[in-house]
Design a protein around this nucleic acid. Structure first.
Lengths: 238, 238
DNA sequence: TTAAATAGCTTGTATTTACAAGTGAAAAGC
DNA sequence: GCTTTTCACTTGTAAATACAAGCTATTTAA
């Protein structure tokens, strides 16, 4: 009976770094030692280190940046027993319709915006749009997007019908979503969201608040999504 | 202006396979071509193929099984615009208390269980336990777990206080959680869940239903989790 | 007939090597 | 003083190779 339980080196390193992060050896925003440094420190090769880092990034403990390093993130683990991660993979187009409620307009940022904003974002103003997504003619998602108006010429005059905002950003501005953070809650529907999602006020609604990092430094895409999960659940694998 | 947009080979392969999966070239449960076959087919090396497959697995399009191959999963994409994936990372122990409501007992399976069950599972009976998790003395999670009684001697007499079910399984039975699927919904609290979570009946509750695959073939761990998200959200990075 | 051993497939882990591409600070030139 | 270039360092991509470990079907032995 082998009790020594030999575990793979990349898992061992993953656990070491994870523990260091949880126990506060690093602060929010700190850089992890570089990959080559970790190689030397732990006597393994770079692919092994990279596999450990890749898993840490997947689980939200770090985010990696080419030319810069791996940045530590502390917050999520405070509460989340779930540590939910998501990908913005497109939904199949069939049966899913998109209805624009508010075409892209430039507005000032809300004073109590759901995420803290940088000074640059505050100065630049906010491009706002609201959309409703229907599956088989039932409203499922009510989606409010915000993005700082930084290097996005003519954004308010583009046609968004049936095209994802992600695609517009990628095709016209060469901006990709690289990652982000999100909060998930169950809340009672307001009169407004209830009207859009065909629910009575007070009925449960799934609420997501997301902050997405883009390939353009300092530019973030925010969205507040209300989901009617009465008929359909959010489905995922992990 | 380079419009050719040279993308990495592993991303190219990822997109090809992803498209094949979405467009129905494979059916649910089908095996993808083996890694070596994909190498030959697309003229790349195994690490490149593995990176593409790793991303597909991360996004829930496939699950990989040593000695067997990569199995295709179709379902999630049908509805989910979010394609939520999660990891079962442990929560920090401080301030989090666990209260056993129903100690592990062996019961028959419910006739309309939330997931379909195999014959072996039905015959084996069900180990059931219910727990409440409190953060700073506020109830946050009400967790009902189910697992088939297969090769789990003395499971009903183990002490579970302040120990995760995952840890019991790992330490006493050498069983690890390898992945799974989940559904997320916002529902009104029933009288019972409301009582446990200190909510009024009808108030919104986040509901998760999870089926987790274990390292023991054919053995799955199910759990139904009700979350009080009034004070705390589920937080995640992606 | 049945059960155990084996062979050949699969993915998992790990090393080594090489170059590309992004970042930021120091050095050079104006 | 200011801008530009360079350089050193970071992660990203990719190949070639080797062996370990898990699964399955066939073969072999009882």
């Amino acid at each position: 009976m082998e009790l020594s339980e030999k575990i793979p080196q990349y898992k061992r390193l993953y656990e070491i770094l994870r523990r260091h992060i949880i126990e506060g050896v690093y602060n929010e925003g700190d850089l992890l030692p570089s990959e080559n440094e970790l190689c030397r420190l732990h006597g393994v090769t770079r692919p092994t280190v990279r596999q450990a880092l890749s898993n840490l990034a997947n689980d939200g403990y770090i985010s990696r940046h080419q030319g810069k390093g791996s940045i530590v993130h502390l917050l999520p683990r405070e509460i989340g027993i779930l540590s939910v991660a998501g990908t913005t993979s497109a939904v199949g187009d069939r049966n899913l319709k998109t209805k624009i409620i508010v075409k892209p307009v430039i507005v000032p940022w809300d004073d109590d915006f759901m995420f803290p904003l940088s000074d640059l974002e505050k100065e630049s103003g906010c491009v706002n749009m609201e959309r409703l997504r229907l599956l088989d003619d039932s409203p499922i998602f009510y989606d409010i997007s915000y993005i700082a108006n930084i290097n996005l010429p003519r954004i308010t005059s583009r046609k968004f019908e049936n095209r994802s905002l992600f695609r517009i950003l990628r095709e016209h501005y060469r901006i990709e979503i690289k990652g982000g953070e999100q909060r998930i809650k169950a809340i009672p529907a307001s009169v407004k969201t209830g009207r859009y999602l065909q629910l009575k006020a007070g009925e449960p609604v799934l609420h997501l608040e997301r902050k997405m990092e883009t390939s353009s430094p300092g530019l973030f895409l925010y969205s507040s999504i209300f989901c009617n999960t009465k008929k359909y659940s959010i489905f995922g694998r992990f």
